[in-house]
């Protein structure tokens, strides 16, 4: 039987990898890819906790959370990519480092 800790460590690793991508990528699309990985690690955690601790009827919380996380992830990606394309069109670049209009 697979221990719960394995899932959690896998999710933590995936989260770390995703976060690394978000922080270090110069390309906005690359940052978005990292974000997807982070979201997936959250889903792994949710399902793992559901399976190990809260599976009994009628507790559907874990599953419902995952379902909603899917929706949010899909929405976030769609809007994110639309923003990237829009930014690209106006600035001809997707380099994060050049998008510093908010510099104080």
């Amino acid at each position: 039987m697979i221990p719960l800790s394995w899932y959690l460590i896998l999710a933590a690793a995936l989260m770390g990898i995703g976060l690394y991508g978000v922080i270090t990528r110069k390309n906005l699309v690359g940052a978005l890819i990292g974000l997807e990985l982070m979201l997936n690690s959250v889903n792994i955690n949710l399902l793992a906790f559901w399976r190990y601790l809260h599976y009994a009827q009628p507790e559907m919380d874990g599953l419902v959370f995952v379902a909603l996380a899917f929706v949010v992830a899909a929405a976030e990606t769609a809007v994110g990519l639309a923003l990237i394309i829009s930014a690209y069109r106006s600035r001809k670049t997707v380099d994060v480092n050049e998008m510093n209009l908010l510099k104080g």
Partner: peptide
């Protein structure tokens, strides 16, 4: 003084948050 912290780079903010 503080405005120097505002680089306008999202990733640096995120690193800060991290």
């Amino acid at each position: 003084f503080i405005r120097k912290l505002e680089t306008g780079r999202v990733q640096q903010y995120m690193a800060g948050a991290l």
